[in-house]
Structures are given as C-alpha cells and as structure tokens.
Write a protein that binds this DNA or RNA. Sequence first.
DNA 1: TCAAATTACGCAAACGGTTGCCTTACTTTT
DNA 2: AAAAGTAAGGCAACCGTTTGCGTAATTTGA
Lengths: 342, 342
Amino acid sequence: MSINRLPTIKEIARKLNISTSTVSRALHDHPSIGWVTTMRVKQLAEELNYEPNFSAISFKQRKTFTIGVLLPNLSEAFFSTAISGIEEFASTKKYNVLIGQSLDDPEREVRILESMKNHRVDGMIVSVSKNTTSFEHFEQLQHYNIPIVFFDCIPERTDVHYSACNLQTGMLKAIETLVAKGITNIALINGPAHLNASKQRQQIYFKGLKMHNIPYDPQMMQTTDLSKEGNLAAMDKLFSLEHPPKAIITFNDYLALDAIVAAKARNMVINKDIYFISFANLPIWSYMNERPLASIEQFPHLQAEKATEILFSLMEAEPGIEVKKPCYQQVIFDSELILHSL
Amino acid sequence: MSINRLPTIKEIARKLNISTSTVSRALHDHPSIGWVTTMRVKQLAEELNYEPNFSAISFKQRKTFTIGVLLPNLSEAFFSTAISGIEEFASTKKYNVLIGQSLDDPEREVRILESMKNHRVDGMIVSVSKNTTSFEHFEQLQHYNIPIVFFDCIPERTDVHYSACNLQTGMLKAIETLVAKGITNIALINGPAHLNASKQRQQIYFKGLKMHNIPYDPQMMQTTDLSKEGNLAAMDKLFSLEHPPKAIITFNDYLALDAIVAAKARNMVINKDIYFISFANLPIWSYMNERPLASIEQFPHLQAEKATEILFSLMEAEPGIEVKKPCYQQVIFDSELILHSL
DNA sequence: TCAAATTACGCAAACGGTTGCCTTACTTTT
DNA sequence: AAAAGTAAGGCAACCGTTTGCGTAATTTGA
C-alpha cells in the first residue's frame, strides 16, 4: 500500500512539459491559452483526479473560503434548521461553515467572535445572544473588513445588514383565530423584558388586543427567564388570577412544552380548557398528543438562507473599496400561523 | 475607519530588527533562541494581538487542522449530541470540524468522502450509513494517509479503529426488567435485516429470551425500513397475532414514537396494556406523557468524544512512518437501561 | 593560546497556486 | 518588405510560516 500524494499543478505541468502558469490559466479558461493546450491540461487533470489545494489558494488569495456562524444554541431545532440553510447555500459556493455557540453568554460571544476573526473567516452570520447589550465586538470585525449579516435575533440599529422575521402577521392572525373562537382572555408569557424579541411580542400583543377591543390586563402578561422554574412560576401566577386565561401565547416552543405540562398538572384538558399558541413550530409537535392549537412559524431555514445570500453579495462586492453610500440590505419575512390538526 | 491588517511575523521581525525565523522560533520556545529575545518577541506579539495565519501554516505544514465528520443525519438528536462531543474535543486542540451528512445514502457517502479528501482533512470520524455494504471508499482514504475512526455504526471488520457501544448490557437489563414484571411475550421491531445494528439487536434478543427460558416465536420479531409506513406495518403485524405482545423493544426512538401512536390508535394504554423499550433515549421523552417504560442509553456524546480522542492519537502518531504491527484502537462502552419515571 | 564546542541568530528554500509582465513566433497591414 | 499587431505561453515574485544549514561571537577545554 503505497502512500499517494494528491496531484499538484506542478505535476501536470511537468508531465505536459509546460509551465505551471500555463496550467493554472488553462484550468481557469484564460483566453491567452490556446484551445489545444487547455484541453490537454483539463484532460490530464481529470485523469489524475486533480483538485486544487485549498490551503494554497486560501493562503495566496488571503481568503479562507469559510464563513463563521455565531448563534445562541445549536441544539435548538430552530437554529439547527438555520444552520442547515446556511450550509446548503455555502456549499454551493464551495464555502465552509465554522460554527460557534454563544449559549446566550455575551462573554462567550465576544471570545468566539475574536476567534473567528483570528481564523480569518471571510464573513459572519450572527444571531445575537439574548443577553447581549453592547455592539463593539461586532463593530471591531468591520475594521478588519469582515462583513456581518444578522439574522433572527438582530441588534436594534439601522446600520446593519439583516434577514429577520416579522412576527406581526402570524401573531395577529393567532389572536384573530382565538377571538373567532370566542376567546378573549388571552395571556402572553413573554421572555426577559430586555430582549428585543420580547419587546416585539409585547407590542404586537397590545396591538392585537386593541384591534379586537380587548382591554389590556397587566396581570395577563407574565415574563420568564425561560428556565423551567421561571416558566412554571409564570404559569402559577396566571392560574392564581381571579380570571385565569383561556388561551396563552408563549414566547417559544420550549416554554409551551413546560406550560402544557403545568396545565395538565392542574387537570386541564389542552385545547378544551386551555389553548396554547407557540412561537417557532418545532417538528416534534406532530408526535405529541397534547400540542398547541397553532404555532407561529418563523421560517428559520429561509431566513438563514437569505442571510447567507446577503453575506455572499457583500463578500463578492468587497473588493470595490469605493465606499459608496453605505447601503444596508435588510430583508423581513412574514411569519405565518400554522394550525396543528388535532 | 481604517482597515486593519492582521499582524504577521514579518511585522514583528521588522519592529524588533530581527529575522522572521527568530520570531517564529521564539514564539515556539525553540531552545536556540535566547531568553531575552524570546521575551521581547512574545511581548510584542501580545501587544499587537498577533495570531498566526492559519492558512499559511496549513499550507506549509500540509495539514488543514480540520477533521471531517461523516454521519447519517445531523438532525437526529443522537448525532447532534455526538457532534457536540466531537466539536468540544477538537476545539481544545484548535481543530475545526467539517460536517457531512450521508442521509444513509451510500452514494452520497462516497461523494462526501471524496470531497473531504479533496478538502485535505487531517482525519475522519465516520458513522457508517445504514445502507452501506462496501468498504472501498474508506480504504481509499488510507492510501492518502488519512486516518479514520468509526463510531456507533461501525463496519464489520477487525482492521479498523472504532468507538462503539455494547448494546448487550442495556438490552439484557431491559428484558430482565420486563420479565421481573411478569411479562414474557416480548416483541422486537428491528431495523433492516442487513444492518449490523439489527443483527446485534437480534442476537441479544435471542440471548435474552434464552436466559429467561422464553421460547422464541419468529412472529414476534418484525422488521421495518424505519419509514413511518414500515413502522406502522410492523405494528399491524404484531397486533394481528393471536397472542399479541405485551412489550415491544423498538430499534430506535423514532420508531418508538410511531409505535406509541399506533398503539394508542388501538385504544391501548401505554405502560399498562403495552410496554415499550426504545434505543437511544431522546431528550424529548421527558415532555411526552406517553413514553417508553425505559430506554437504552448509548452515550453518543461519550462515544463520539472517545472516537475523537483516538483520532487525535492517530494523527499525532502519524509522522512515525514506522508501520509497526498495525494496532487498532477499539473501545466499547456499555449501554445502560434508563427507566423513565412515569 | 589555540582548537573545539556552544550559544544565538540569520539566510534562503520550500509549501501550491496566481498573476503582472515579458518573450517568441506568427499574421496583418500599408 | 518593414512595422505593427496578435496569439500563446514562460518567468518570477508573492502570500506567511517553518526549518535545515550556515555563521559569527562567545565560552570552554587542554
């Protein structure tokens, strides 16, 4: 068993008695190389199963053909779906994907970003950690000319590129659906108040209530830190009310899982005594026999794919150092309400 | 906003009026560089926030510092847990992880392996696709001196490195547990017959029955292609028997999910009329109110971590071309039966 | 006191591929 | 027929780091 070396451009050149530059150009269909030579090179390359050495090109071009992805948690279905969208798009462009999880810890976020910079990623896709408040670490990357596209969890600024999801369409539709069933005491269990995502849900919640002339009762909106204990505590509060809710909109699916368990512990029948609406729409619902009435789908795959597309457009435009009026690409998808058949 | 360049060894050398080779050696604590110079270099490097250029090193060393991971399906919790184990270990060694999904398609497997080779991965961790029968494509990598460590789904050969899980401990314990509850008509819904994983389960099933003097009834062992339809068909067969089973061991968790749905469709009460034992132990069970009596935990994180450890030992030993008597590292963990509290 | 050993560092090539510029040999043009 | 243009391809530098070998300065040994 001999140990093979992968063929190089030099080998091809030697075997054909031409120079390496000719081989290189031939492989790139450079016009200054004759038809015959080009064909001979390509054929031999094919025979030898030649593949360009990534490291060499990356070195020479000062590009790593790698994009960094930084998101809160890979193990959440939402994000792994997103990764899959990113990976698909990137692989068509022959790019690699380097993944980092912030675990919603701002310090980890900073460290990972630093490490990505040192790995010389060509661009980044970021879903901001839930607890991040500062923006410097992102700004720093721009000094090194590394473009960033945010998705899903985006910073509250106008000078960034992003691809996100408009929760309003799905959430208003959810409230509308509940009202149509004659339900008006609708609660919201929201995430931590400082989150952009929480603020959005709250505003839409207000708007939805107003649209249907439902007065807002502050006790019907609870928040949780999204821990199991926090989730159960929020449920406790809602059910210790004089008029407990008939329907609950939950910040996300995981919260809904806990909430459903809590409701059952109170001997309530799901989708009869109590209705749930969740954000995200995990695939496991189809296996559960007690599930929310509906979920608000945010199309993580689509969002992430679009973010990747934007990133590539930025990376490809990069060389033009002409900093024309900075034009930020911002795409927003509409969320949709998906009813779970019962 | 000026555009920074990441500092290089050359810059450090220039600023200190020494040669790049000295800087390089100093950074590596080479003994031939004096204490003072070494310190001066290190300090300046620190100040400038110097990080070695990966591409350059990778190019020069003919190593990519990347390991390839090839597994059937990233979206299965079992494998994403495994990835996490691999990623953790690799990142401590400053290695990157390149992921490929075979989707249990042998052709994709071959293609991905080829692509990994061309990406010049330094080593591979592979969980073989369920439908793979040949071994050539793996052998080919060895010609290029790329070590492979298999995990979980391993080929039936002795001349490979692997980290796997011994199903016997958990599965025998499962049968023992059932028998202790007075249940003896225990069925097995197995995966495709040609799978190594299926053969193992079958053998242990036989062994377990024999240990408790339960006669083997061929009708109590069904197989499925693991599609939803196949799974339901297997359940149909079992329940059209004269003496349907009281307990069913399922090839994996996903099959168990379908099987539970099928049982409920027959108005059976789970863990009363019928008991299930599943392989894998998905985290979602804790949220489901109808779950198997127990699951056989195979410790994917641990398995994968160990596989990575073995891979690194191989990659580090690599240079010694002295092909001493090929010694294969093979680690087997015991599975455990995890009871689900009801 | 002079050869030998040691210390501390520099020189330059190499890794594989790309690219600006130059050269050679034809082919056109006038 | 001489000047100019074109087609096809070679030369060599470069990207950042590592490393074998060479060398100057200093120390050691006898």
